[in-house]
Design a protein around this nucleic acid. Structure first.
Length: 507
DNA sequence: AAAAAAT
């Protein structure tokens, strides 16, 4: 088996990894590290949760060490761009762990934080700068930083950067970094625009793809409640959370306003909750995330600012309080659970005006999400032939759709089935690159899922709560606690060695 | 149509 040693990393970095509990590289690490070490440009097709940060961070640190230079003031040696402030902070936190025993300096540049402090830090010399594009350009314009010595450029979550309209900023930044550089691009999906971006900024890139994308979402047990409206969503949400007192939940809302309103309500009825969205100050966002990560609060109500990449160990439930307008976002949201080899449950609420969105999601993922409760709307069924002549699919549904419970994924032993037999990564199959001979097989496999009873759902939910819950925690943990009653960091510790190099998936 | 990101 491949070890980090085999990948050409120095003793220095290796000893840090050992101290951190890393032994076995994840697939993307095993694939990418040697290529980066060899100096290639790289396209990494990988979701968050695959160990991306280490995949580019470790070899980059290694090469910076070998170069042996010290950074000039205001002149960085490596630049990492990511779409949200939270992601930037998370990447930097990981890198800071990796460079602990080295003289390499890592700094963060994001909006919403003191620009003067960032400026001062850059003046003291920074090797690796992790940034959101807007603030970086701001600092460049103020001459607080120059990119002319940046020999490494990483574009993380490139698809989201494009979605968020960062393309213009990326163009500006690309003109400021030297031509003679190594560029690494990571993206969960490979739409045309990303391929074009890669063609523009990468030279003769190698490609690393973690098999099969969408796997994280695969491990998530998914259910949908058909509801009449928001108040019913809230009632079911509260009941389900109370039924799972050991759980940790992320609740996604479509709007910032909606997220805030829901958070206030949950707080009012006694849940230990915070919210995170674009109307919150950066300080508030970071405090909310930290409190949730530390286990001080059990529920985080969020907009899609937190849908991608955010890595919080031990999230047991993801609630889609509102279904997202963009079906991709659903996949990213539910990917906040079932991380680091754990299980997870995703519960969606579907109001009458959201059925179209549910259909889009089910079509994208090529699954039928199991119905947990509610009247199944007549127009839920996808039109025949909507999926390329696979009209037979509907015929696979249980006769008498009146009690229309279906599983989103196989149960039990099927998890151990060969990868090709497992559920399809179709959320990411929009591009031709991922469509392979297995695609059809996977679809077949899915189609075969029989009906599942609500009782099974309840049992699974109950069981899941235990399996995922942190040992020793009592009922009522959703409620506000007086002090930090011993929850603390236990979860994170407990995860430490899990799955070798994957124990914290973004690390 | 909403969200994020520079102020």
């Amino acid at each position: 088996m491949t070890t980090f040693k085999d990948l050409g990393l120095s003793e220095h970095v290796l000893s840090t990894l050992t101290a951190m509990g890393f032994e076995t590289p994840t697939p993307i690490q095993a694939g990418a590290i040697p290529l980066v070490m060899a100096g290639h440009d790289l396209i990494g097709l990988a979701q968050t949760g695959t160990g991306k940060t280490a995949a580019f961070g470790l070899p980059m640190i290694e090469k910076l060490m070998v170069d042996g230079k010290r950074p000039d003031p205001r002149n960085i040696r490596a630049l990492i761009l990511a779409p949200t402030r939270e992601l930037v902070n998370q990447i930097a936190a990981n890198l800071k762990e990796f460079v602990k025993k080295t003289p390499i300096k890592v700094a963060v540049v994001v909006g919403g934080a003191s620009i003067n402090k960032q400026s001062e830090q850059l003046a003291r010399g920074v090797d690796i700068l992790v940034a959101t594009p807007g603030r970086l350009l701001d600092l460049v314009n103020r001459r607080a930083v120059t990119l002319t010595q940046a020999r490494y450029l990483v574009l993380d979550e490139a698809d989201q950067m494009l979605d968020l309209g960062f393309i213009h900023d990326l163009r500006k930044i690309s003109k400021l970094v030297p031509k003679n550089r190594q560029t690494l691009l990571f993206s969960a999906t490979m739409p045309k625009a990303i391929a074009e971006l890669a063609g523009e900024y990468l030279s003769d890139p190698k490609r690393v793809e973690v098999s099969p994308p969408g796997k994280a979402a695969d491990k998530v047990e998914q259910y949908v409640h058909f509801v009449a409206g928001a108040s019913q969503k809230t009632e079911i949400l509260k009941k389900t959370m109370n039924d799972n007192p050991d759980g940790r939940a992320m609740v996604f809302s479509r709007t910032k306003h909606g997220a805030e309103k829901l958070m206030k309500h949950l707080e009012h009825v006694g849940f230990s909750v915070a919210s995170i969205h674009g109307n919150k100050s950066q300080g508030q966002r970071e405090r909310a995330l930290k409190a949730f990560r530390d286990g001080d609060i059990r529920v985080l109500v969020a907009t899609d600012v937190a849908a991608r990449g955010i890595d919080i160990p031990g999230v047991t439930h993801v609630y889609n309080y509102d279904l997202p307008e963009v079906p991709d976002a659903y996949v990213h949201r539910i990917g906040r659970t079932a991380r680091a080899g754990r299980d997870g449950i995703a519960i969606a609420f579907c109001a009458p005006d959201e059925i179209r969105l549910l259909r889009d999601i089910e079509r994208l993922m090529n699954i039928d999400i199991a119905v947990a409760s509610g009247e199944v709307p007549a127009d839920r069924a996808r039109p025949k032939g909507a999926r390329g002549g696979n009209g037979a699919r509907n015929a696979q549904r249980p006769a008498g759709d009146g009690h229309n419970q279906r599983r989103a994924r196989p149960q039990g032993g099927s998890d151990n089935a060969p990868r090709a037999e497992r559920t399809a990564p179709s959320a990411f199959a929009g591009d031709e690159l991922l469509v392979d001979a297995n695609g059809q097989q996977k679809k077949q496999h899915r189609k075969g899922q029989g009906p599942a009873a609500t009782a099974a759902h309840e049992a699974a939910v109950a069981k899941r709560g235990n399996r995922n819950g942190r040992p020793g925690q009592k009922q009522g943990q959703w409620r506000n606690r007086g002090g930090n009653g011993g929850g603390g960091n236990g979860g994170q510790q407990g995860q430490r060695r899990q799955g070798g190099g994957q124990r914290r998936d973004e690390a």
